[in-house]
Amino acid sequence: MSTVSSSQASSTGSRAGSSAGTASAGAQQRADRGVAVDIRGVSKVFGSGAEEVVALKDVDLSVAAGEFVCLLGASGCGKSTLLNLVAGLDKPTSGTVDTHGKRIAFMFQEATLFPWLTLAQNVDLALRLNNVPKAERKPRVEELLTKVRLGGRGHRRPHELSGGMRQRGALARVLAQDADIVLMDEPFAALDAMTRDAMHDEIESLWSELGLTVMFVTHNVREAARLSDRTVLMESGPGRVKQVYPVNLPRPRHLDDPHLTEQAAHMTDELKTEVARHVR
């Protein structure tokens, strides 16, 4: 399932003409291993005076094109803030975030499918805002919904879907953006374990099929070990990078792989001391 040829991705990747230079050559891009996201000396301060909160302090991180990076940490360590800075939803107080003009898609914890549109219309809107011509949109919507196994359900409204289906719909919308970089902010945190497990399989296969660069925020160690090439452990107060773990396990991975469990256990110990410090 993860070995769908990249030709399919490029032939169907109906991207707007303007930026065709970096277009759909995802798999190739991954081979090139350029830098997709460059975070240098980034600090973020909210509020001022007595109310001042330093959310991030001197964060340096670079993510290679095609890399799957998980940001792992306890609540309040600034991992979501960092993701927002990469997305351009917020500006750093100091330092720079360079995404080299690449296209960025964002998958939120809540599916944020627009409730006034059907599932298909939600995906169609992403295509429309990506300037995909009208004639190409309809078949593309159905194709994307089929890809996330929601084929034939396009007429449903978001509130008529289960939590897992909504997140898969949000995933289809992300794919419709044909982005190079996909940012995910705990997208599966609200899902049950089995649905989440299935979503991991899907994300992994889509990531490798499309050659995406993924930054994935989670507080779940096993999720990080399951998905990432590298896991960035963040500490809080102020938020900064504590340690970076390479996760060199073969793919496709399985949660019950003992090597994965071992890796997760190792990271858990670190996280526990971090959480203890934070709670105390």
Binding site: A87, L89, E110, T112, F114, W116, L117, L129, R173, Q177
Partner: peptide, 23 residues
């Protein structure tokens, strides 16, 4: 959340109103 989602989808300028804010 809808504004952020719309922003990331590329709904900027008048399209922000047409596709996110007004609905």
């Amino acid at each position: 959340a809808y504004l952020r989602a719309g922003h990331m989808l590329g709904a900027r300028g008048w399209r922000r109103y047409r596709y996110v804010v007004i609905p």
